[in-house]
Design a protein around this nucleic acid. Sequence first.
DNA 1: TTAGTCCATGTTTACGTAAACATCCGTCCT
DNA 2: AGGACGGATGTTTACGTAAACATGGACTAA
Lengths: 325, 325
Amino acid sequence: MADVARRAGVSSQTVSRVSNGHPGVVDRTREQVLAAMRELGYRPNSAARALRSGRFRTIGVILFSLSTTGNVRTLDAIATSAAAEGYAITVIPVEAPTQDGVNGAFTRMGELAVDAVILLMEVHLLDAASISLPTDVPVVVADSDAGDRYPVVDTDQAAGSRTAVEHLLGLGHRTVVHLAGPSESFSAQRREDAWRRTLHEAGRDVPPVYRGDWSAASGYAAGQEIARTDATAVFAANDQMALGLLRALAEAGRKVPQDVSVVGFDDLPDAVAYLPPLTTVHQDFAEVGRRCVAGVLRQMADRTIPHGRTLVPTRLVERASTAAP
Amino acid sequence: MADVARRAGVSSQTVSRVSNGHPGVVDRTREQVLAAMRELGYRPNSAARALRSGRFRTIGVILFSLSTTGNVRTLDAIATSAAAEGYAITVIPVEAPTQDGVNGAFTRMGELAVDAVILLMEVHLLDAASISLPTDVPVVVADSDAGDRYPVVDTDQAAGSRTAVEHLLGLGHRTVVHLAGPSESFSAQRREDAWRRTLHEAGRDVPPVYRGDWSAASGYAAGQEIARTDATAVFAANDQMALGLLRALAEAGRKVPQDVSVVGFDDLPDAVAYLPPLTTVHQDFAEVGRRCVAGVLRQMADRTIPHGRTLVPTRLVERASTAAP
DNA sequence: TTAGTCCATGTTTACGTAAACATCCGTCCT
DNA sequence: AGGACGGATGTTTACGTAAACATGGACTAA
């Protein structure tokens, strides 16, 4: 910076002003400084800048793994929204949902150069870890439950599940079997609860729950059992398990949708190419990401911590995997 | 830090030594400092640390989107490897493969707090942008072609494709149709070249190429055309297109694998649940990620720029989508 | 005993920037 | 004409840390 200043014949402070787009620099001077910057290949030192300003212009995203589609798509949206606001994203993966894993991530996080944190994971693991986030950093929790400790942004799991179940009941099915996600997952829990409540309110039998781990393989395993029952309608807690379910039903000779109707959750891009194309609940991951970023930025601006939950609506995408019984 | 020093009754330099695990601090003193840190909730300021040491302990990953499975899985592996080495990952998404998009990302990158960069994108777009990376930052390019300007880590696309084609020929198919990826993609190009070469060397006809954009929907569209031909074996350039292809073949009444054999590329977790389970070329994304990280770390240590290409081997995973004609 | 060594710890300094304050000069008003 | 004002730019300083160098005391060996 001093070199640039010398070359442009100004003070380093003027260089700083140009560099940050501050007003009060006359055009001619600005041009000289910019020219000097170009000639010297000057690039501001972000460490010094951060040290001085106390801002890193970076948001940390903590997540368990990039192997679940939902997380990834939310992360994508977060990264895009953040970039639009001039913020970079630091990804902090937690290897395993163990105490050690979470501890490690948070220890690292403590030393991390981030102005805010978005948590893409189940917060009860946070509790278990008996470590809480640095209190001076804005936090938004996505796709989880944070009680009232942090603001939460989430897909409206309950409404989505209700839509799915009501769609199947509306087609004339007596009841709907649920292929649930892992019981540790709040999303899975909420989808299951809403399924149960919807059936209950409609005065239908609530059949036993089948449970998978979100993977297609687990959906296949559960599907083999379901195929042996007289179920005519299945609501799978995500599309990947629905894919495995479709395979199990096909192998068992149960036709979809003639014999069994299937509804998924997520609306993966691939779902349109399943056999048959999957009727599913569309999640607006992009909107979730946008609201997460908006949430932390608002906290940074206000220095206030808004609590409460923001729900992003879903919509049912009807394809070819559902029909009247 | 000064507060911690005062509280522990030592100098700030001793605090620094404890904080960084330097030797030459006696146990008793170390304990006192650690206790003071705990009591005061001290967390080192990474900006100051980076300013002083010149290291951010952060690696930047530039990519086009998180919507392609390969990128995401590589990113996951990179993040994990980097975390194991005490490095954080900053994701720098480039919105669109346009000149502006790339320029923007690189401008931002220039000001970014990263010690090294891993590029997860086609480098010819880099050329088009007529902007090159800051020369003082180690770079590794993955899944692309960088000529000899940067070291490259990539899946062994050619060997993988050859395995797939030879597997099909070995089953007795006269020739193999290729459902290729988009022509802008180097990966797609290399898979296509290897397919063509393998057929050629075996003295077989080289049928016209069908082309998709990696998506299941595009695979479905191409599949509808392929279903009208007398093709008995198809090598799809990725699993998602293979999924669409399977749907198109099923709808056209062509049985897989009895009438048509299909091989994919990637080995997505879901591929095991396709109808039928997909025979595919397994890519070791984790290894690609590890080698990318190892590559930039080595550059940082040596201050040398190793050129050349590192190829990660693939293996064929035989499932139920291939059979003798 | 005394000089030499080595280890634990303290002191000083610089990293590159931006905020706060200071200065200078031209303009405008009375 | 003289002073007040405001805009453009310069000067000083502090951000929190770690490297380099300094110090002091304990131990060893002759």
